[in-house]
Amino acid sequence: MSKIHVSTVINDDPVEYLCEPQQSLLDVLRDELNLTGSKEGCGSGDCGACTVIVDGRIVCSCLMLGAEAEGRKITTVEGIATGDKLHPVQQKFLEHAALQCGFCTPGFIVAAKALLDENPNPSEEEARYWLAGNLCRCTGYDKIVRAVLDAAEVMRAEAAE
């Protein structure tokens, strides 16, 4: 069995790797590229801890083959901040104590960022449904939803400036 050569862009960097046909994008990110920020909570698309953005849409990287990434543009949690400046979603997660153990956090950060890119002013209900594919067992979601709505407000204010 020969490995597949893939050229792709991850967090704005051109990346090449070899992967086995059955390896998921998550396996590749974690085991081949040492991008361990994306987490595996279930391996079946039910928890969202491995959420990444592929060509502008969020997907579970455990449900995508590494081989499929050829020519795509991928953003992982490691690519959400700009240099040493946190994204407003990251900053608000910290301020609202929207994480306890922090394991689901990368997936929430990526999913929430994508939500606010698409919908700058989500209602609480819209935020809850958008984030329903991200399981959190620690927080009861309350502070996560507050952080996301607060980040939206900050981003709207920034955009208006």
């Binding site: 969202g48 592929v54 997907v59 579970c60 995508m64 994508a114 958008w130 329903a132």
Partner: peptide, 9 residues
């Protein structure tokens, strides 16, 4: 069908 992540695919 599934979550927003699933909707992406």
């Amino acid at each position: 069908i599934g979550s927003q992540q699933i909707q992406g695919r």
